[in-house]
Design a protein around this nucleic acid. Sequence first.
DNA 1: ATCCTTATTGAACATCTGATCAATAACACG
DNA 2: CGTGTTATTGATCAGATGTTCAATAAGGAT
Lengths: 203, 203
Amino acid sequence: MPGTKATEAERREQLLNAAYEVASRKGLDGLTVRAVAGKAGLSPGLVLYHFKRKDQLVRALLDWLLRSTSLLQVPETISEIDDPVERLHTLLRQEMDRASSDTGRSQLLFEYWALGTRHAAIRRRIEVEMNRYRLAFREVAEDVLRSEMGRFLGVTPDGLAAVAVSLVHGCAVQAMIDPKHFDIAEYLDAAEGLVGQIPLPTR
Amino acid sequence: MPGTKATEAERREQLLNAAYEVASRKGLDGLTVRAVAGKAGLSPGLVLYHFKRKDQLVRALLDWLLRSTSLLQVPETISEIDDPVERLHTLLRQEMDRASSDTGRSQLLFEYWALGTRHAAIRRRIEVEMNRYRLAFREVAEDVLRSEMGRFLGVTPDGLAAVAVSLVHGCAVQAMIDPKHFDIAEYLDAAEGLVGQIPLPTR
DNA sequence: ATCCTTATTGAACATCTGATCAATAACACG
DNA sequence: CGTGTTATTGATCAGATGTTCAATAAGGAT
């Protein structure tokens, strides 16, 4: 009674897509072997044939998530900007917009984040991603500090990068939990106003 | 075979204490009726006698958590500070220190936060707490903007307050997930350096 | 002492979960 | 066409979990 076969890669991808749909609707709690199988129109046994245990499916879904949105990409349009402060502004703006629009994916990543608190394997995966993210900001932060040495006394590139990361995460989280009281434009203005008080382009 | 009785309030408190111990060790996933009963040395049936359903226990534990650390308290030592910028600095420092030291409680709150994404009742509870928190910062933020009008163009009190909240949460989260790469002193300096570039007291 | 309310117990039930596995058919290959 | 490999199925198991409930005793009231 088996159905048509498929290559390992194809089936895994199909199952991961199903897993994402399930998890993004029902959360990580609702992510069950049977639910994934059902969503994919396949049998429960098959899910565990391709992912030996459930936690391997959960980890694979996290990898899939991170792969399908490599978290920070600095497009040429940004790296071409001359003024470092304005470059940081633009980068922050881009990331906050993305984080606060992509609510579905952000929610799921948020759940993984909380899960990482207890499960070392998940935590490690998130650590490296967070590092990658922070380092991308660090480069721009270095330029900012170099170009305006006197202004930021005692501020290190790492510190500034960590703060930038917080601003993005904080934006995503507040937009997720309490969208009504959260005005993203105001938030952006405040964030940019802090990181170098330069008359902003008309808004 | 029943054991000694207790008043409703006492038993609830005892069970909530047990629930906290279980949840802070095993996470919200590990928070099970039997585990709570076991930790309290009572029977599983009794847990559901006092909290009719499990999700009521979960909600009660969240209330208990929030009650036992009313999230932001502005002590007189802070409200007495004259300079608004320095007042904001001190408040930020206090909150970041607390958030990054109290890791156990912070972790649990973080899990509730993620849970709120899916469960409206939890989310609402967190919303009001987040509002309370943000409003406390808003007052100080207003003073800062009033005292240095020219410096922060286009920055509103709400925006600045939201950013301050992000800085605290971001600090807590980064300290939780990746304590190795997270230097809190650097982070503090960077955050303070942004919120008003004033020569810091020697560090 | 006796009664009555009720807090407490622990067994039992129903459900859901991850996991196992023998049976089966799809497919590649000779 | 025949044969062997293996992807697929679905029933099944074992364990955990939330919830119910009859039985029981504890403690206050009379």
